[in-house]
Design a protein around this nucleic acid. Sequence first.
DNA 1: GCCAACGTTGGC
DNA 2: GCCAACGTTGGC
Length: 141
Amino acid sequence: MPNPNHWLVKQEPEKYSWETFLHDKTTLWDGVRNFQARNNLRAMKKGDLVLFYRSVVEPAIQGLCRVARPAYPDPTASEGDWSVVDLQVLQTLTQPVPLSLIKNHPRLATMALVRQSRLSVMPVSPAEFAEILKLSQTKLP
DNA sequence: GCCAACGTTGGC
DNA sequence: GCCAACGTTGGC
């Protein structure tokens, strides 16, 4: 898959943990009710790489997944125009990358993750993505 | 648990 | 269209 885009999705472990995702292998990323986040979901292409960020409890980037199916209507939305994508687990990062490290890293402190702390689906630049993989000591499969 | 930041709603 | 009130997110 040439030139995949890179993204980051955020979730609280109480709502949907990385461990649950590992068990499920594939999940639909539902419940997004923010227009900016929804538009980011809709910009995802099949095969795009997605970082999984755990919020609230020891905030850190934890895992890597990819878009298995691009945006389609959110079956959990009773009203409004909302979307989901299907995400497929790729691997757990060798070392999680904590938010504290990202905030103190000169090349990562400008990430949307830091600047827009409440956005739950966001793009990641190729340079940011590469740096996070490096910090996590993780190699792409 | 507290609180800041931010998005949404609704009165005017 | 403005803005106050309110609800939610998420770091700490």
